[in-house]
Simulated assay, not measured.
Amino acid sequence: MDSAGYVQLSNLHSMHGEWESAERVRSLMEKKGVKKDAGWSWIEIRNEVNAFHASNESHPKAEMIYQVLNELFGIMKDEVNAYKL
């Protein structure tokens, strides 16, 4: 039931462009009920460690954090589009 081997195998297939094989591995995980744990990240700000994972909204300042992230994504998207001209 450990997802690590499945994820690594799927990633290896993906790295080599073997998309159907990667999908078969992911489908097998689903069929067997193997769940991948969400990855966690940590950041230290002013001697305080903040831990979070993707789509985590439990942080007391989550609303502000996501607002800033959306602004940054908009800026990055504008920059990418400027280079496409």
Rank of each mutant, 00 (worst) to 15 (best):
M64I: 08
A51I: 08
W40K: 00
V68M: 05
M29T: 01
I65Y: 00
R26M: 11
A4L: 09
L9G: 11
V49Y: 14
S58I: 05
S10I: 10
E71Q: 12
E57A: 04
K32H: 10
L12Q: 13
E20S: 11
K32E: 15
W19K: 04
I43H: 08
R24Q: 14
W42C: 09
S14V: 03
G5L: 12
Q67K: 14
N56M: 10
R24S: 13
K31E: 15
A22D: 02
D37E: 14
S41C: 06
S10L: 07
A51V: 15
N81A: 10
K35W: 02
L9S: 09
M64G: 07
L72G: 07
F52K: 06
G33S: 11
A51N: 12
K36E: 08
S21D: 15
Y83V: 03
I75M: 12
E63N: 05
H16V: 04
V7N: 03
E79T: 00
V25F: 01
K61T: 09
S10E: 10
N70K: 15
V68K: 04
L28N: 13
S21P: 06
S10C: 08
D78G: 05
S55W: 04
A54L: 14
V49W: 13
L72V: 10
E79M: 14
A22G: 09
W19H: 06
I45F: 06
L12T: 15
H53D: 02
M76W: 13
V80K: 15
S41A: 14
S10D: 06
L72P: 01
E71G: 01
Q67Y: 08
V68D: 06
S41K: 12
N11L: 06
D2G: 01
S14W: 14
R46G: 14
I75L: 05
E71I: 04
G33D: 05
S27Q: 13
M15W: 11
S27N: 13
Y66K: 01
F52Y: 12
K77Y: 07
G17S: 02
N47W: 13
R26A: 09
I65N: 00
A82P: 01
E18W: 09
V49T: 07
R46E: 15
Q8C: 05
N11C: 07
V34T: 05
L28P: 03
W19I: 02
Y6W: 01
M15V: 03
Y83E: 04
F52W: 11
K84T: 01
N81V: 03
N50C: 11
S10P: 03
H16K: 12
E79F: 06
N50H: 15
Q8T: 11
N56P: 03
M76S: 12
S41D: 10
L28Q: 10
S21C: 08
E44R: 08
R46L: 14
Q8G: 02
G17Q: 03
N70H: 09
A51C: 12
K31W: 09
W19N: 05
E18I: 03
L9N: 10
W19Q: 03
D78W: 15
E63P: 00
